[in-house]
Write a protein that binds this DNA or RNA. Structure first.
Lengths: 312, 312
DNA sequence: ATAAAGGTGACGAATTAAGGCACCATTAAG
DNA sequence: CTTAATGGTGCCTTAATTCGTCACCTTTAT
């Protein structure tokens, strides 16, 4: 018997029992223990609500979902979840493997006719837009797995046509502005780094001893690992109301917005090698921003604008 | 997706339809015709009472409903939903009133201990970041209600310190880059418009007769209501690879990216009154962009940079 | 301590799945 | 009668999956 058919029969089989063991499956379907185990995994993947009981007289049982009212979310909650899901759907890469078709169906199954209709009506009326995914990120799953299980990863990282092999301990992954990023500790360089996931061309979980304490890190606290080097330069820019809004739309952890006597300033630090980057960022503010210090930043910006003028 | 899972989803898929075609399966499950055919065979083997209708407008029909064992969300799906919800939570305004606390609790209640633990471990490891909400939008609910129920709304709209009263028929609402927007048809001005919701200072549902046909509009098709006026100016800019990426991160419906003999161009139109806006947008590309036409755009950009230079 | 349950990892041989292609059969519309 | 849209078959190649075996681990009740 082929696997799909067997899995389906199993679904029916376990549905009749409330309790069964691997032995039962082995006899019933004439398969080995290993295969029975694998089939259980397949059943769970399909969504069968079973759980295992360990030890002597253990076995598998069905979660009795019928007794507990099947997730009674109210309409508003259902909407919220549904549209959250829709937003997820537009990601071309996710750190989990999910079929939105399947979620969609299971979701609608749980709902009353009324709720179903309302959802359908709202379908084309609400959206949470975010930047579309720009580059495919192929290895999100191992990155997430490593960060959750506190493992060390060996990755190939491609940066401007150069590929380097890094040994990293991922802390978290996040999507932002069309890209996936991975916060991690670079074991070799002994420093906190952020990697862009689409530039990771391969990822492999190793058994290298992870750094202790790093698994206590959360996404936010990890940023604190980032310290301005001794060479870091302080800067300060005056911004108007519009500039402040732009800042809120896009900024980096090394800067903040401060109010000072009716005026607003962006203050922060940059590493010398990031100069070009920061100039480009600040130029995006246009007239809404005025560099106060340092002078070198003013000079650079002037040069930047001159270059652009010549390039037109 | 592996075959057993696909077959299961198919069972549920065809169970909801009374009629479907090979094409449906091919699209829905992203498989070839040959495979779809084979899957049909597998379904029959599993016991689905399907029969085929030959010829044009043919397809498959289900004789009677199949009994499919109940299944629930699998772990991966639960994770995805959970994190989608987390992302929603960071919105300071939503068009529905929800208590994330309550959703959170209901969610965790339904899960097995195992899943609960995994979720907790992932809590600080994954995030879908989007721009934080910048301005409060107070009247999202009436806007959504009006768009769903096809009602006409009277709103006060504040634009650069001037408040005007508009009579609009909302088509959809969406969030983007930290703001909520509302696509709507302005009944008085007889034109399609997009409003920023935080600038709507009051909203009231009226009983004014709505425009017929508008409720057929979806979010995407509504954009087609937007037509460049007679005064609209065509423009064309050369961009390099980096420029193309920037374009993908941020662009507007009136423009598109085209490939032409190894080169990439942004082409589109702008309204004369949007000139300042478009200049600012294009300036954001820096060296990665070169205006090809019209000349007036080049001139404006040059002036823009000169002004900035003087302002440093 | 022991026995009985579930669970993992690795490996190689066997099997299956998948897509592509060419071509056939049936049916309705024009 | 032709065309388009639909289901259906056979055959080929390549890639992926499946399965059993075996060794060994974990959990739990007795």
């Amino acid at each position: 018997m082929k696997k799909p058919e067997r899995i389906n029969q199993m679904l029916r089989f376990i549905n009749q029992k409330q309790h069964f063991t691997l032995q039962d499956l082995m006899h019933e379907f004439q398969i080995s223990k290993r295969t029975a185990l694998r089939d259980i995994a397949a059943l769970e993947e399909v969504g069968a609500p079973i759980y295992a009981e360990y030890g002597r007289y253990g076995g598998y049982r069905l979660l009795n979902q019928i007794q507990v009212p099947p997730i009674s979310f109210n309409s508003q909650e259902v909407f919220a979840l549904y549209f959250a899901m829709q937003a997820l759907q537009s990601f071309s890469n996710l750190p989990f493997q999910v079929s939105f078709r399947s979620i969609h169906e299971k979701f609608l199954n749980e709902l009353s006719d009324n709720q179903r209709q309302e959802i359908e009506r709202m379908q084309n009326r609400v959206a949470f837009r975010h930047t579309e995914q720009i580059a495919d990120s192929a290895h999100l799953e191992p990155l997430l797995t490593a960060s959750v299980k506190n493992k060390v990863l060996k990755v190939d990282y491609q940066k401007t046509s150069q590929t380097s092999t890094r040994t990293i301990q991922p802390i978290s992954i996040y999507s932002m502005k069309g890209y996936w990023y991975c916060q991690a500790y670079d074991i070799c360089k002994k420093a906190y780094r952020v990697f862009r996931c689409d530039r990771i061309t391969s990822a492999e979980i190793t058994e290298i001893q992870p750094l202790a304490g790093l698994n206590e890190m959360t996404m936010k606290s990890a940023h604190s690992l980032w310290k301005p080097s001794e060479n870091a330069v302080q800067f300060k820019c005056l911004v108007d109301r519009k500039g402040a809004e732009l800042f809120l739309q896009e900024h980096y952890p090394s800067m903040k917005l401060v109010h000072e006597k009716e005026n607003m300033y962006i203050v922060g630090t940059y590493e010398p090698k990031e100069l070009d980057f920061i100039i480009k960022y600040l130029a995006g503010f246009g007239k809404s921003m005025k560099i106060i210090e340092p002078v070198i930043l003013k000079e650079k910006l002037r040069k930047y604008y001159k270059d652009l003028l010549n390039g037109i």
